[in-house]
């Protein structure tokens, strides 16, 4: 793929144009669509490494980032992705306005919709918020995280990082470890990696494992060593420190002792194992710095880089479809 010359027609000329108007959930993607997005993202990685990073795929398009929850890296990643594709990007921060929680979502969405954006990127603390919003606006909605439900662009960037590290995803054993219950990253990854043919395991304390997770198409483990035994990829999840309340976990030191990843525990994984983390990390809680900062093991910095490319792929695919409407 010649990334420099990539235009909207190239995106559109792909064998399988992206069929959805919105990008809400990794569970909506089949293997063909997911692979196609990864191929497209690969090209954008090359583009982003050049001095001139800009395309005009989204020229004239307006993209709004509507983040009801705090975020630095996801917001910047989307903003960069939009700008590199030539869109006009506006960041809205509804938390700073005076409206209350309940009214904000629909009211803000309807107001913003009247400004005729083409792409609306939404993060919200309630599961299903992006889906609800997509029913009320005329533009394409991209889910940048809804409660505990999904964070589909994160799954896409994780898959991109894995595919670039291993050359393939099918057949890989991926252990997703930690606070699965509250993790939208885990849910999106289970869906996407499953579609792409990876063997997925979920590992964590039983209090942080959602009921019925064994029926998601993943193996469930409570013992970290057993859970990561022979794994090609170990993906650690962030443990919110407020989980120490409510009898979920006794303490951070106990958590680290049993579910924190260090070099010693990692020894049971497959040779050549790679470690991932969606960030931001709690060093010494779920992951030891020695592992996180080892460039031969850690893919964590790659994940951040891949984030921009993966989001560019999503935006470009949706934009190509917008033009066809």
């Amino acid at each position: 793929m010649t990334s420099l010359a990539l235009g909207l027609d190239d995106v559109r000329a792909r064998t399988f144009p992206f069929p959805h108007r919105h990008f809400l959930s990794a569970a909506d993607l089949n293997v063909i669509q997911a692979t196609d997005l990864l191929d497209l993202a690969d090209g954008f990685v090359d583009l982003s490494r050049q001095t001139s990073k800009k395309l005009d795929l989204l020229k004239g398009r307006t993209m709004m980032n509507l983040f009801f929850e705090n975020s630095t890296r996801t917001l910047s990643s989307f903003e960069l992705a939009g700008k590199r594709l030539g869109a006009d990007v506006v960041n809205m921060n509804p938390r700073n306005s005076s409206v209350t929680k309940g009214e904000t979502l629909i009211d803000t969405a309807v107001t913003l919709n009247a400004m005729r954006p083409d792409l609306l990127v939404v993060r919200h603390s309630s599961s299903g918020a992006a889906s609800l919003l997509s029913q009320k606006v005329g533009c394409s909605v991209i889910n940048a995280g809804d409660g505990r439900h999904e964070h589909p662009t994160q799954a896409l960037l994780d898959a991109l990082s894995m595919r670039r590290a291993f050359g393939h995803i099918s057949g890989l054993t991926v252990a997703i470890c930690g606070d699965v219950m509250h993790s939208r990253v885990a849910r999106s990854n289970v869906s996407l990696l499953g579609a792409l043919g990876a063997h997925v395991r979920l590992v964590g304390p039983p209090t942080l494992m959602p009921a019925g997770a064994d029926r998601w198409g993943a193996e469930v483990h409570t013992d970290l060593r057993k859970g990561i035994a022979g794994a090609d990829v170990v993906m650690m999840l962030r443990l919110q420190l407020e989980r120490m309340q409510g009898a979920l976990v006794p303490s951070t030191r106990e958590y680290f002792r049993f579910w924190g990843l260090d070099r010693e525990k990692l020894a049971s994984a497959a040779p050549g194992v790679r470690v991932m983390h969606p960030g931001p990390m709690n060093r010494g809680v779920e992951i030891d710095s020695e592992v996180a900062d080892d460039p031969t093991i850690s893919l964590i910095q790659d994940q951040v880089e891949m984030g921009v490319a993966a989001r560019m792929a999503v935006l470009a695919s949706l934009a190509a479809r917008l033009d066809n409407l």
């Binding site: 599961s127 299903g128 809804d146 505990r148 009921a211 019925g212 997770a213 998601w216």
Partner: peptide, 15 residues
């Protein structure tokens, strides 16, 4: 209600 569905939808659930 706690279970596979509520877990997948990411909804706070009780058993």
């Amino acid at each position: 209600t706690e279970g596979e569905l509520a877990g997948r939808l990411g909804l706070p659930a009780g058993p």
